[in-house]
């Protein structure tokens, strides 16, 4: 092996020193609890009867996976995730193009678009809830009697709230991608006779692909964890609960840490599968890959 020079060794030590606190914190607060959740999920552990705690193997998982509740919540979550991310992508692309191309009022649009991103989810959720609540809301009439108590309408409204809140984030990520498309390339396409739509589809979109994938990954993972909006809008009633809501209910309403932890682990696995699928799509272009200067 080559001898490391003093400088390289110093650099190495400094690197470790600087990263150590962050790594320690992240590991202590996530790795350990995750392992603990795994441990809990293999035990019967009900806070109301702590003395009955014992190892039950995969019983909790069997209980969760064989119950209708989990699959219903899973379906609802997937539905909300797929629909809201799809709508966000379309709307976000529109917004991004508006911000990119606007010939006037760009700062106003940007400020307006940032607002939903910044506003506390719970606040927005309450606003929506009141908008649809009979006797208070200005939107009730547009959706018929108490829309939040109807399964499909409620899911639609949850998706609406989610889309409203997170489209701006999507739009900003896409805007950054749009900015990467060289103006000259578009001009070349124009000279080559491409129509506006062809330019978008054949030049802009392919060049934006990395940005789109990043935005989709972030948003899909985020949407799958949906909790705040549902908690405020419906509390998960009428079959509108997501997997996160289900986990929360088992933990804090039923106080069943064993089952709750099993649900937590399952959600974690789902998220890991989604992330893995996306990263396969990305290739290895993960952020922070080696690109230090020569």
């Amino acid at each position: 092996m080559t001898r490391l020079s003093e400088g390289a060794r110093q650099e190495r030590r400094l690197g470790w020193l600087l990263c150590a606190p962050a790594v320690l914190v992240m590991l202590a607060v996530t790795a350990y609890p995750v392992l603990y959740a795994l441990y809990l999920s293999l035990h019967r552990y009900d806070l109301r009867f702590p003395q009955l705690a014992r190892f039950v193997g995969l019983d909790n998982y069997a209980a969760v996976l064989s119950s209708g509740f989990w699959w219903e919540a899973f379906q609802v979550t997937c539905l909300i995730t797929v629909v809201s991310v799809a709508v966000e992508l379309a709307l976000g692309m529109g917004l991004a193009v508006v911000m990119h191309r606007a010939i006037l009022g760009r700062p106003a649009v940007r400020t307006a678009v940032l607002l939903p991103y910044g506003i506390v989810t719970v606040v927005a959720a309450f606003s929506w809830q009141y908008a649809w609540t009979p006797g208070i809301g200005y939107l009730v009439d547009s959706a018929g009697e108490a829309p939040l108590t109807d399964h499909w309408k409620a899911i639609g409204l949850i998706i609406l709230a989610e889309v409203w809140k997170t489209t701006p984030f999507m739009a900003l990520l896409l805007l950054a991608g749009l900015a990467l498309v060289p103006e000259e390339t578009l001009r070349a396409a124009m000279v080559d006779g491409a129509t506006r739509w062809q330019r978008f589809r054949l030049v802009t979109l392919p060049l934006m692909k990395p940005a789109i994938l990043v935005a989709l990954l972030f948003r899909t993972l985020d949407a799958f964890r949906i909790f705040d909006n549902i908690y405020v809008l419906t509390q998960g009633s009428n079959g509108t609960g997501s997997v996160s809501i289900l986990g929360y209910d088992n933990l804090f309403t039923a106080l069943n840490l064993g089952i709750g932890s099993a649900i937590s682990v399952l959600i974690f696995l789902c998220v890991a599968v989604i992330a893995f699928a996306f990263i396969r799509l990305f290739g290895t272009a993960a952020p922070g890959s080696e690109d230090t200067g020569r």
Partner: peptide, 13 residues
């Protein structure tokens, strides 16, 4: 990418 709900139960305990 971590789902916070997965941490809530162990952290709670």
């Amino acid at each position: 990418m971590f789902p916070p709900i997965s941490l809530v139960s162990p952290l709670f305990d």
